[in-house]
């Protein structure tokens, strides 16, 4: 059972970075590039910082650049949580 779901990420995006009017965040976004969803590097830094505060999982800068879709962020966070034995 994943501890961090796509809905958790959706909530973080909504609360901390806002939503582009043209984007349906509730749609099937797991494999959509963040750029296409209207999120830039600052938005991802903001999300990473929120996730670190809420879930205790830091996302290093180099790693963040590789995580280009919501799905990849969810996978990464869960791997880290599992590794930490949470």
């Amino acid at each position: 059972m994943p501890k961090f779901t796509l809905d958790d990420l959706r909530r973080t995006l909504r609360e901390s970075t806002g939503i582009d009017e043209e984007v349906d965040l509730d749609g099937d976004i797991a494999d959509t590039e963040f750029v296409e969803l209207g999120y830039d590097s600052l938005a991802l830094l903001q999300v990473a910082s929120e996730v670190e505060r809420s879930y205790g999982v830091p996302i290093p800068g180099e790693q963040l650049a590789q995580l280009t879709t919501p799905g990849s962020v969810v996978t990464f966070i869960n791997e880290q949580l599992q590794r930490a034995g949470v």
Binding site: S16, T17, G18, I19, D20, E21, Y39, L42, A43
Partner: peptide
């Protein structure tokens, strides 16, 4: 105001 600009 564009939704993405409001929180920033």
């Amino acid at each position: 105001v564009p939704g993405r600009l409001i929180p920033q």
